[in-house]
């Protein structure tokens, strides 16, 4: 059985949860088994995960699961995995998923691979899987040396696919007394756009913007697309934009479907965080800007002309 930990926030499933269940279902087909999901704490209609391929949904509630604690969460997941004989456990490559991945590997003595972005393969009886390494400059294939494995799934690896019906729901009430961590506050940025690590569309700008007062054209473009805004490091370092927008080697690593970069030169450290985007559009007035080499589409012109024109063109196309 493939067991997928589907994360929710304030009771709502995150997009990454549907991706993970879809991935779990496809993995189960490859490994010749079925897919089940595990949901922890408050969650609205857990049975809906059946639509993405889970046959059963184990819903864990109890004192240890009211807020995130990596120990109680991994105890809960490992308990279900052991009871059901899970061969593969899939979590999302998020702050929560990454905090339990290593614990599950140790608890279950299961080989782990973090940030997978390919489906697993079964080779001579062993599970193998690939992920990107060296800032997207290479792909590494891992072999699992144990009968069971734990993966964290990179966001935007595949699109959630809905086909089935609601799953059988199994309510599990557990009192976990091991909880040592208490969440005292959660502070989420306001705004309708998806947070950067999960965003499918990202509009980003760099020092070519000349100053923070010019960001209106970037926000307009992001708004017509429903995209999240990002920036290069010097822009965040000088306080033109908030730090959480900084992408790159030392900032957030993203892999949206579309990354539009205006007035960013494309330094290697910047590319390290955005290289895995599916489609890259670069707007830069310097034809020699290194970013053009990593781009799919390039516009060599003054961004102050091009960006508003692109916004208009999108508005027009969207009717």
């Amino acid at each position: 059985m493939v067991l997928v930990f589907a994360e929710s926030q304030n009771g709502q499933f995150k997009k990454t949860a549907f991706e993970a269940v879809t991935y779990g279902k496809k993995s189960a087909e490859i490994l010749g088994t079925t897919c089940e999901a595990i949901v922890i704490g408050k969650a609205e209609n857990p049975a809906q995960l059946g639509q993405y391929g889970a046959n059963k949904v184990h819903h864990l509630t109890g004192s240890g699961f009211n807020s995130f604690d990596s120990q109680s969460y991994s105890n809960g997941i490992a308990g279900v995995a052991e009871r059901m004989g899970a061969k593969l456990i899939v979590v999302s490559h998020t702050s929560t998923g990454k905090s339990v991945l290593g614990r599950l590997s140790v608890k279950l003595n299961a080989g782990s691979v973090s940030g997978v972005n390919h489906l697993p393969e079964s080779k001579e009886g062993s599970i193998c899987v690939k992920k990107n390494v060296f800032s997207g400059k290479a792909i590494a294939e891992y072999k699992i040396n144990t009968p069971n494995a734990v993966f964290s799934l990179m966001g935007n690896t595949l699109k959630p696919e809905q086909s089935g019906t609601d799953a059988e729901l199994i309510e599990v009430q557990l009192e976990d007394t091991t909880v040592k961590t208490e969440v005292v506050s959660v502070d989420l940025q306001q705004g309708s756009a998806a947070p950067l690590p999960e965003a499918e569309l990202v509009v980003s700008a760099g020092r070519g913007m000349k100053g923070p007062e010019n960001w209106g054209i970037i926000e307009d473009l992001a708004n017509v697309l429903g995209a999240t805004t990002a920036c290069s490091r010097p822009v965040a370092d000088t306080g033109w934009r908030p730090h959480h927008e900084h992408v790159g080697q030392t900032g957030v690593a993203i892999r949206p479907n579309l990354y539009i970069a205006a007035g960013i030169s494309g330094a290697i450290q910047h590319l390290a965080g955005v290289n895995n985007s599916k489609t890259i559009v670069v707007i830069n007035k310097d034809p020699e800007a290194p970013f053009f080499k990593a781009a799919d589409y390039g516009v060599c012109a003054d961004l102050f002309d091009v960006v508003p024109r692109l916004t208009e063109a999108i508005k027009k196309a969207k009717g």
């Binding site: 590997s105 003595n109 299961a110 080989g111 782990s112 691979v113 193998c128 990107n132 390494v133 997207g136 400059k137 290479a138 792909i139 590494a140 294939e141 891992y142 072999k143 699992i144 040396n145 144990t146 494995a149 559009v281 670069v282 053009f292 080499k293 990593a294 781009a295 799919d296 589409y297 390039g298 516009v299 060599c300 012109a301 002309d305 091009v306 024109r309 692109l310 208009e312 063109a313 999108i314 027009k316 196309a317």
Partner: peptide
């Protein structure tokens, strides 16, 4: 014991070279 290890590496399929778009024609980019 190592429970999981890298057995091989490969290089990603190279990006086909960038398509340059006429700055006057953003409809084409869209």
């Amino acid at each position: 014991e190592d429970l999981s290890i890298v057995v091989s590496y490969s290089l990603p399929a190279g990006k086909s070279s960038v398509k340059m778009i006429d700055p006057e024609n953003m409809d084409e980019l869209v």
